[in-house]
Amino acid sequence: MANFLVWVVWFFAAFACLASALAVVSFSNPFYSALALIGNLASLAVLYLVLSGEFVAAGQVLVYGGAVMVMFLFVIAYLGDRTDESPWSGGPSWQIVGAILAGGAILAEVCVVVGLKAGGLLSKPQHIGRSFGSPEALGRAFLTDHLLAFEVTSIVLLVAAVGGVVLGSHARQESDARA
């Protein structure tokens, strides 16, 4: 019974995920695309929960939904309504055909590669303990096994912050000069 529930939840989440992804790609108004992405991110968080990744799910919602998407929406609002033409408005072109083919090929390959290379590993899901995916487990992993990744990631964030300030301040000087 529990399994059946999980399946239902999974299907809903997966369907929402895909639908919102397609919506992102096909809306002409960037604002709607951003909103669709929020939906995508939320359904992904649900999927993470199914996979016992509670901390990651929380992080997904907080970071992506709370920070990244907010930034996106701010910028889209700031830049005004520059509506793009939908990609298939000019009729089928080499770009579209090529893109669809390439996308399909990548999809097929992902499935094939993982299926071929993973081998026997894919058939035996491991048992996990109660603390799997908990903040305590992740924190311990971060600060012992993956300390370097932790520190480097923090540097990346620092650089990004500095970069954002620099990009923003240049623009301000430019606009001050013009004004």
Binding site: L18, V25, W88
Partner: peptide, 11 residues
């Protein structure tokens, strides 16, 4: 999902 994202980048 990856293919969809790639399509978006390309198109």
């Amino acid at each position: 999902l990856f293919a969809t994202g790639a399509l978006g980048v390309m198109l």
